[in-house]
Amino acid sequence: MWITEIYKHDHRLSKLSPTIRALYWAPAMVLTLVSGSVYFNFTMFLVINLFLLYVSRIRLSNLARLYRIPIVFILVGCMAIVLEIPATKAFVSLGKLSIGFSAHGIQLATLLVSRSLALISIMYFMLLTNTISEIAELMRKFRIPALLIDLFVITFKFIENLRNTGFEMHRAQKCRLGYSQKMKRIPLFAGLMAAVFHQSMQNARQLETAMQARCAGENYCFLQEERPYAISQLLIPVGLASMSAFLLLICGNYGW
């Protein structure tokens, strides 16, 4: 499941400029980064996802699928923090080696999981309400060096290109009964990877030629449709940001 596959161009924030849209996610990101509260982070995770489902018009099943890979990575990473060897309270012993959970590790891992999930949900919110060129434009407004922005756009385009080429070639292999024999799977996959890189390079070259033919310069500049600003557009994001800050203060005050 890829973001570009489920991105809805008619999401509920599409009429707003990317700068106003940033006010929906940027304060949440800053507050989550500075927060040390597990409750706050989980609340943000929940609220952002509910808001994302409403705003982006995507299905819950699709959103859930997006979390599969990051959750696996986070949980695997947390195992290293949670496990204690040798453990004071072991749940399994391998000879003289006792393995258990450390109380401090569990606390730290919970904070890590909550913060990571909240930040990932904010990242998905940003990606599902902005196109790549809108994010690049926003980066330009924040005076991020042009080289980094171009690298960001090129990397995104190349990954997209690799994915499309890989998908088509994999389908072509399967149509010719590829991967039907277990012993041949690894060489076939290696062959696929080599062909995908080769084809992707060719596609990238052709794209470059097509861009040059339309006078493309050194920077990847796209022109978005003009979206009018209005003070009233600020009310909801500022309200949400204030409520989030208030919640963080409460969590901090009560030591949650």
């Binding site: 861009m211 339309r214 500049c221 796209f222 022109l223 978005q224």
Partner: peptide, 17 residues
């Protein structure tokens, strides 16, 4: 040939350059 994320930006690409 298509490089931009939306039809609008695609049509504007050459002109913007």
């Amino acid at each position: 040939q298509l490089i931009a994320p939306s039809v609008y930006e695609e049509v504007a690409f050459g002109l913007n350059n």
